[in-house]
Simulated assay, not measured.
Amino acid sequence: MNIVYGTDLLGPMHAHQLDEFTLRAEVQPNADLIRSATTTAACLLGMTGQIGTLAEGAHADLLVGEGNPLEDLTALTNPTKNLKHVIKAAKTI
């Protein structure tokens, strides 16, 4: 069974968006969590190779941060501390 990462919390709940990673890390390896937000989600949407990957011709946003989320998930769940750059549609934001 495939489980994908959800990004549908809006309004005041948006601040809790990354809590899903923290909760799921209790039962899943970090690599599986990252795949759930990238390649697994792309597959579910029928967009394998188009999103969820860094490849020529794909639509990809890129997060650049401190730390290795495969070893320490807070590299992703604490963006205030760890996120250094976001590249969206080929532009740094």
Rank of each mutant, 00 (worst) to 15 (best):
K84L: 15
L33W: 00
G46Y: 05
I34E: 00
I34L: 12
G65N: 03
D72C: 09
D8N: 14
R24Y: 13
A42T: 07
I34P: 00
M1G: 07
A75C: 14
D32P: 00
L83H: 09
F21W: 10
T80I: 09
Q17G: 13
A41N: 04
I3L: 15
T48L: 07
A25I: 01
E56H: 07
A42P: 12
E71G: 07
P79Q: 07
G67P: 01
L70W: 12
P79A: 06
L9D: 09
L70S: 09
T80S: 06
K88E: 06
P12D: 11
T22V: 12
I87P: 05
G49A: 07
P79C: 10
L73Q: 04
T22I: 09
L45N: 04
L18K: 09
N30Y: 01
P12Q: 13
P29Y: 03
T22N: 04
A60Y: 14
S36N: 02
L70I: 02
N68S: 07
H14A: 15
I93Y: 10
T22M: 08
L45I: 07
V4L: 04
G57P: 04
Q28Y: 08
G49R: 11
L33K: 01
T80Y: 11
N82Y: 09
G6T: 13
M47W: 03
G67Y: 04
A42D: 03
H59Y: 14
Q50Y: 04
D19N: 10
K84Y: 09
L73S: 03
M13W: 11
F21I: 02
V27P: 00
K81W: 02
I87A: 11
T48M: 04
L83Y: 08
L54R: 02
A55N: 05
I93W: 11
I34F: 02
T7C: 12
L23Y: 11
A89E: 12
H59Q: 06
A41T: 11
T74G: 01
K81Q: 14
E20K: 00
D61C: 11
V4A: 05
L63A: 08
H85Q: 07
Y5C: 03
I93D: 14
L62D: 15
H16Y: 10
A25L: 00
A37W: 01
G57E: 05
Y5L: 08
T39G: 09
I51R: 03
H59P: 01
L63T: 02
T38V: 07
A90V: 11
D61T: 11
T92R: 15
A31C: 00
I3W: 02
N2I: 13
Q50P: 02
E66I: 14
M13T: 11
I34V: 05
I51K: 07
L70D: 05
K81N: 04
A75G: 08
K88I: 11
D32L: 07
S36Q: 01
P12F: 09
Q50L: 12
T48Q: 14
A42H: 10
L44G: 04
A41E: 06
L9H: 08
M13N: 13
A58T: 08
G65K: 09
I93H: 13
L9W: 10
D61A: 15
L76I: 09
I87T: 09
L23K: 12
K81I: 01
T77F: 06
Y5V: 06
L9T: 14
P29G: 11
T38Q: 06
V27C: 00
A89L: 13
N68K: 03
L73I: 13
L18V: 05
L76Q: 13
A41K: 00
T48D: 12
E56V: 10
V27I: 13
